[in-house]
Design a binder for these strands. Sequence first.
DNA 1: TCCTGTGAACCGCTTCACAGCT
DNA 2: AGCTGTGAAGCGGTTCACAGGA
Lengths: 215, 215
Amino acid sequence: MPAARRIPEATVTRLPLYLRVLEEAAAQRTMTVSSEDLAERVGFSAAQIRRDLSCLGSFGIRGVGYEVEYLMLVINRQLGLDGERRVAIVGAGNLGQALARYGGFSARGFRVVAAFDADPAKVGTLLGDTRVSDASGMLEGLRGAGVEIAVITTPAQAAQRVVDVAVQAGVGSILNFAPTSVAVPEGVALRQVDLGIELQILSFYRHRVGDPAGV
Amino acid sequence: MPAARRIPEATVTRLPLYLRVLEEAAAQRTMTVSSEDLAERVGFSAAQIRRDLSCLGSFGIRGVGYEVEYLMLVINRQLGLDGERRVAIVGAGNLGQALARYGGFSARGFRVVAAFDADPAKVGTLLGDTRVSDASGMLEGLRGAGVEIAVITTPAQAAQRVVDVAVQAGVGSILNFAPTSVAVPEGVALRQVDLGIELQILSFYRHRVGDPAGV
DNA sequence: TCCTGTGAACCGCTTCACAGCT
DNA sequence: AGCTGTGAAGCGGTTCACAGGA
């Protein structure tokens, strides 16, 4: 009986990676993988992986490893990927397009059921295969479509307003790509990704030469 | 004399956020900010911020706070944003477009000096305002343009090949958006962002109801 | 008085090392 | 023999709490 422990945040962020390599393994008709195999594919230690997986229960086979199919099932269920998630994309720019067309979404059960933009020129066009609606109808639109996750790809100055409307519409999870920090009330899940910040972090690690700069 | 200490990785990832809110503050003609002010804007604790900034030297004014302009200068220099960084984008799809047009890049001194795609239909088109070249000329192209950072927005199966060529061309930093883990040799900086994984993490935190699922 | 800079305590995550199961 | 699952140790980062400067 898999004793489901509390799952540390750090572990949660790694589970999707395991899922990705497990799919690769399954595609190669691999039946079982050891923590060592997984370690090689994802790039961190075998101990780390055993510790992570032990949080989900204890279903590895000693002397053998983990059953690929079963492990995928367990991780999928833990992440809540066993059903469908209703997603809205707000902001029909290039990033919104990129996300709407990204195959990895639908493959994981994320369905884009609504799209919004404030620009009249974009309203009525297709984002992936979802028709873009006017942002003025967002509150009702999000409610009506039963959206659980809102993905924000608007300019920075619109982001907080969009978040507020989404929360009001009962959206429980927000993924913010706008280059500004937004606030959500207690109980709403939030993740923020800033593409510009990633480059800045890289920029730091670039000039690792001992540079004892003064003031 | 600001004693420049070693900067923890966690701190580095926060510096760009400080920069962002400092710019907002500067736009509002704010001359100084306290760690408390900053904490409110970025959303973590004042102690955290003081600790982070103390790594860059000690130039806060007790009883007052930090000078906005000077703090920006210090952080910019630490991140290596005081000069220009030559960037290439590989993969001219929607995500590549989104990045090329993203204002936050040029504002921070990141210049897109080359773009590549394997699709003949894309070659010759514009990515932002950079002409897309054929991927077959990537090695020479990257070298010739003196690219320091390669941003990868190709499909997963092309990513590792692109990384290998980039490294061979002397590119020191890689930002990978392709949904697969790539490997780089020692000494090359690497960051990976998977848009799909962010959604999966959110999905986990969504169903926080006590769900004692069995096997 | 007010806020910085920082030792010290604390906390969560990672790694080690090995007992125990197959 | 081989690999999992996990106590225990180790490590990095965060928070506390306060000494000390403006």
